[in-house]
Design a protein around this nucleic acid. Structure first.
Lengths: 189, 189
DNA sequence: AAGCACATGTAACAGGTTACATGATTTC
DNA sequence: GAAATCATGTAACCTGTTACATGTGCTT
């Protein structure tokens, strides 16, 4: 069974930290958590509407400035229950982590040899940019703090996710570097 | 821009190795390439129909046994062109690699401390099972061959994708192991 | 003859992206 | 006053999953 309604639980999880508007939720998906899940504002507003009718969240209005309305959302007790049971569920299998670059490399034989290095170099550039961004984030939030044992539970979730993202990118870059060498040597043979 | 019609190109790529039926394509997604892209048979048959009307592939019938029809598909010259230009395209950004376990960990503060180790252990079990499967595959295809420089171009694609999948799982397992220790120590403080 | 793998298809629904549409507030 | 950001929403379309539906061929 595929994992269903992940966006629902991502939103409930964000709201369990603090009340937010649809716009705030959209912004969160551009930060740390966006490394592992994201959605566009159009989808988020629809999901919020659905969560309201399901009584998992409730809404109130805040005014910014003179008349700009921010629709703020809060978890209901049902929403808290929904979130908690989702967080405690055991996964029975890992889903395919889709990766278009790896897919393309599988079809390597149809790529002219001279085109391959620039494909790798482009990917390396993108991955290095992402890694630099993640390292910046790490420095901002955990720069001085070199012992995660001192973090509170909320910070710890952020820490684990950031270190996961960093490890993932470093591992990707290592594989790209090694593979590029192999392909170059293979081509010279 | 999100990457569009990836399934189309995955199918064209598979057909560039040899003619296949919809069933064969479905089977391929259960092997190495399924680590990076997959689809259900229902979606594959629809996509094949679409590719036929677009003249990217053509169809012929093979009979197995007495009357079981296998609809075989071949790349047309248009299909080969489509595939080639997709393989040479530069990606302008890396997409979010969705990962539900990491998402759940971000919401760690809402998980009771005593439940956390079993969540990690479940994930470790799943990841270790996957790694064992991948290592088996590696042994089957590249067991004796310890020098990828001797591989031909078709085998090289397979090699790179398999080593990528193995590296990904090893990296995941390392992070899980380290993180579980951190969470345990953090909880004792 | 039972069970499993081979083989193809459709329908309903769920999830996600792009484009369209509008207006307020802040910053320079 | 222009531009960027804040803020919310809908419509059309594309992608992907689950369930339904049917039949053949091989192995034991």
């Amino acid at each position: 069974m595929a994992q269903r309604r992940v966006l629902k639980y991502a939103i409930l999880g964000l709201l369990s930290k603090q009340d937010m508007s649809g716009y705030d939720i959209t912004s969160e998906f551009k930060k740390a958590i966006g490394q592992f899940w994201s959605a566009k504002h159009s989808q988020i507003y629809l999901e919020l509407k659905k969560l309201l009718t399901e009584d998992s969240i409730s809404q109130y209005i805040e005014i910014s400035g003179v008349k700009l309305e921010r629709k703020m959302y809060t978890l209901t007790s049902k929403g808290k229950e929904d979130l908690k049971s989702w967080l405690l569920a055991f996964e029975d299998h890992v889903q395919t982590e889709k990766d278009v670059f790896a897919l393309r490399l599988y079809f390597l034989k149809d790529i002219p040899l001279e085109e391959i290095p620039s494909l790798f170099e482009n990917q390396l550039r993108l991955r290095n940019e992402k890694l630099a961004f993640l390292n910046d984030q790490y420095a901002v939030y955990f720069g001085e703090e070199n012992n995660p044992i001192d973090l509170n539970k909320e910070e710890l979730g952020h820490f684990l996710v950031l270190t996961k993202a960093i490890a993932r990118e470093e591992n990707y870059i290592d594989w790209l570097t090694t593979s590029l060498e192999i392909v170059k040597q293979n081509g010279r043979k």
